[in-house]
Simulated scan of single mutants.
Amino acid sequence: MREKFFWVTCSSLLLMTSARPAPQIKNRPEIEQHYKKAQEALRAEQDAIAIREFRAILRLDPGNASAHANLGVIAFTEKDYAQASQEFRAALKLQPLLWNARAFLGMSELRLGHRAQAQPLLEESFKNVQDGSLKTKVGMDLITLYYQSKDLNQAVDVVRVLARIRPEAPDVLYTAYRTYSDLAARSLSALAQVAPDSAEMHQILAQALASQDNFPGAMAQYRKALETDPQLPGVHFDLGQVILANSQEEPARKEAEKEFALALAADPTNADSEYMLGEIEWLRSNPQGALERYSHALLFRPDFVDAHIAAGKALTSLGRPAEALAHLREAVRLDPQNEVAHYRLAQAHRRLGREPDAEREEATFRKLRDSHEPVRALFEQVQERPVMHQTIGPNEPQ
């Protein structure tokens, strides 16, 4: 659907409004007929007829701001930005608070290369436009301006607003990814210049190496970070994770266990460290010990999805599938797209002899697994992983 029709749809209540009180408008029935014909022409994508009808309205009612605004949107859609700007200015002269018209005027001025004029119009209208689609277009233009002026902090503020109003829009998600990535790159560059041998720089290098599966290199960088600043928050936990990622044999478990214990000493309510200590107990084939740790993690963070899944897994292993259901159902409620949660829930149902429920959850698991597979490798590469997620073992039936 084209933008001009969008404007008429959103502004139909404004079309009959002029800068003068309604009783002063003459020929209202005739104006209404022209409006009806203009709307029909827009639906049929007959621009010339729509323009003619809006011009007829202005001859009958020169103070009709919405007729100017509609003409402006037609011109904008046809990329005649100079004409669009002229029409929007005429509309705003009559009704200064037509925020949609102000937004389109800002977008028109930007496309004419008038950045200085466009920016305040876009900033003001972005705060006031109510329609999500138009607000997104204005926000995208603002982000372009902020990028050109190298003001990424302002761009981030706009991204946050767009993410709230259109959280699943691909263009918004891509823009958010790009903006945050560029802001991170800029911060890294600044850190490298002002403190190239700081604990934080070693921490970043460790994270980069870990993302490339260079776990020995990551461990070395985390240890350098701790040598530089033994109190650096989060490093003991991160080091414990890469130790386990590098090896899950008992010597590595003991080494990682020490790091998670140090993390808990610094923060006794650290749910992530409790959870990872539970994972170590699970690796030791100690489901009861693992369950105790997972339960502690959930005391500190009741919405910890992986801890719920792990607790359900441990309870099922201990022959307590009825208790496992509560944790696994909560995991599914918190994260309906988590395929492992559905898989473990199917296992618990099967242990209880609820075959139809088990088959339903297995079907959901397979559907999610298949839908996630094409992007799994990319997702695992770019996502931030604060803890090791629950997985399904290679020897488990799928």
Results as ranks from 00 to 15, higher is better:
359 E>S: 11
119 Q>R: 15
337 Q>N: 14
387 V>K: 04
381 Q>P: 05
230 P>D: 07
45 E>C: 11
110 L>A: 13
265 A>R: 11
165 I>E: 12
360 R>E: 10
332 V>E: 05
344 R>K: 13
14 L>W: 04
98 L>K: 03
47 D>K: 11
91 A>G: 04
188 L>D: 10
85 S>H: 01
27 N>F: 10
278 G>M: 03
63 G>W: 14
370 D>K: 10
208 A>K: 09
262 L>H: 10
9 T>D: 06
297 A>H: 08
45 E>V: 12
211 S>P: 03
3 E>P: 05
134 L>H: 00
313 K>D: 13
119 Q>T: 14
376 R>S: 10
254 K>W: 06
393 G>S: 07
269 T>G: 13
338 N>E: 14
54 F>E: 05
348 A>L: 03
331 A>P: 01
236 H>A: 04
69 A>Q: 03
135 K>T: 11
54 F>L: 10
396 E>G: 07
257 E>P: 04
255 E>W: 05
204 I>K: 06
126 F>P: 00
347 Q>E: 13
10 C>Y: 06
377 A>I: 04
255 E>P: 04
374 P>L: 09
198 S>R: 12
324 A>Y: 12
395 N>L: 11
285 S>M: 06
84 A>F: 00
4 K>R: 10
104 F>A: 02
285 S>N: 11
288 Q>I: 13
312 G>S: 10
124 E>W: 02
280 I>G: 02
33 Q>A: 14
232 L>Q: 13
132 G>Q: 11
165 I>G: 06
345 L>M: 14
246 N>P: 00
274 E>H: 06
200 E>R: 12
274 E>G: 00
360 R>S: 07
193 Q>F: 11
364 T>P: 03
341 A>V: 08
289 G>F: 09
396 E>F: 14
322 A>I: 05
57 I>G: 03
382 V>P: 12
379 F>T: 14
70 N>E: 14
387 V>M: 06
371 S>T: 15
47 D>Q: 07
247 S>A: 07
164 R>Y: 11
72 G>C: 00
326 A>Q: 05
365 F>G: 08
199 A>C: 08
30 E>I: 03
290 A>T: 02
206 A>M: 02
257 E>R: 13
39 Q>L: 15
313 K>E: 14
16 M>N: 11
320 R>H: 12
177 Y>V: 12
16 M>G: 11
369 R>I: 01
307 A>M: 07
134 L>K: 01
107 M>C: 12
292 E>L: 12
170 P>Y: 13
359 E>K: 13
345 L>Q: 11
212 Q>H: 15
7 W>T: 03
291 L>R: 03
107 M>A: 05
3 E>F: 03
97 L>W: 08
106 G>S: 07
121 L>G: 00
365 F>R: 07
113 G>I: 01
133 S>V: 10
36 K>E: 08
187 S>P: 02
289 G>K: 15
154 Q>F: 04
104 F>P: 00
307 A>Q: 06
115 R>N: 09
340 V>Y: 06
340 V>L: 11
350 R>Y: 06
4 K>G: 00
127 K>N: 14
